[in-house]
Nucleic acid binder design. Structure first.
Lengths: 198, 198
DNA sequence: CGAGCGCTTGATTGAGTTCAAAAATCGTGG
DNA sequence: CCACGATTTTTGAACTCAATCAAGCGCTCG
């Protein structure tokens, strides 16, 4: 059976037992998206959360000037979704796209509800995840309000050391809210000051 | 009885019935904070959500440079809390303070749980509020990533026309992530271009 | 192997900050 | 109710960080 990461995740993170797992696992479908392929387009209603079994996703918006702003990355064992769109059944404001060839588990509302019914600890976990999401967004706002380009980058590589290697630089720049050129200069400056990532 | 706003709110927004209201209303306490008084300090665990019955609150952080960054405002019929701190029982990263003399309803976990037990529609409403919060944070991140000072300000007065009049300008500037001087200039520029708020 | 994409580097520009000080507004005590 | 001190807002000038524009390099993948 594939989806080993997802199973392990449900057990170790969400506290779902082996037995519950069997009952839950009737449902989930997996799907492979190629590098560059879209999982969700602006204007579509988001019907799933995507659990990344293997690979790398990004979500992003495009503003009136045609510029991309990356909202989030998701590599192995992360979820990606447009919560607002899914919850309110509204067209999404953003895009979700595969940065690498990516295997995802499709998680729809029925799955969540079933899992929450079957496993109390899954329900708790889900609530916890929501709160964590808020905390994460809050922190990002704080960084954007106050921190310089360099601080934002340092925070990023600190928080997501694995992503730093896999995500193209211009996408990291977009996530940080700076231009690729600026990021290049920040990195140069850090290197000069003898900063070694990892 | 005071707390009329809170009652009306529960009925009209959260769909709580008159009958349920009587059972729920054993609990909530109200409290008055004077202008400038702190409702929550950094480092404290946040044990309540505050419903603003009358008045105006702000939440803000202070960064390493000693600069304030305003997270959120809350006037009548809004909630203010540090969700993360309350949920995870962690010391809060931020401050909550009264901008005007403010009457708040203190809402603790027991109240939420009781209300959710008694009223199904309250439970739904609460979930909805959480999702809305996420959507709101998301939007703010987008603005901070892409928009100029002017656009951010226009968005603000569009979203919170009432606050624009009651909140000191330097606080709005802090919320927008710009200096008071810059905001003053933005306003001047808008006035010159014959822009009339309201 | 060549075209395109991503990264770097340089020169220039510009939005917003900083510092300073004046003008306007607020609030509080007499 | 007025007056005075404090806070807020405005204005000006110099400066700074990051954006923009432009060009070149190197890699990859078709």
């Amino acid at each position: 059976m594939v989806l080993q990461n997802f199973k392990t995740y449900l057990q170790s993170r969400a506290g779902v037992t082996e037995e519950e797992l069997h009952r839950i696992f009737e449902i989930p479908q997996s799907k492979i998206f190629e590098k560059g392929e879209a999982l969700l387009n602006k204007g579509d209603v988001c019907h799933h959360a995507f659990f990344v079994e293997k690979g790398l996703l990004r979500s992003y918006t495009i503003d009136e000037m045609g510029k991309e702003h990356i909202i989030q990355f998701a590599s192995e064992n992360w979820f990606m979704s447009d919560r607002s769109s899914a919850y309110f059944n509204e067209p999404s404001d953003f895009y979700i796209e595969a940065i690498e060839d990516t295997t995802v588990v499709l998680i729809d509302k029925e799955f969540i509800e079933l899992a929450a019914t079957i496993s109390a600890s899954f329900r708790q976990y889900n609530e916890r995840a929501l709160q964590n999401h808020i905390r994460h967004l809050q922190k990002r706002i704080n960084l954007l309000l106050g921190a310089t380009a360099e601080k934002r980058y340092l925070d990023f590589i600190n928080l997501y050391p694995d992503l730093t290697l896999r995500v193209p630089q211009w996408m990291i720049a977009s996530y940080l809210g700076i231009t690729p050129e600026s990021l290049s200069r920040v990195r140069k400056e850090l290197a000069k000051r003898n900063f070694k990532p990892h």
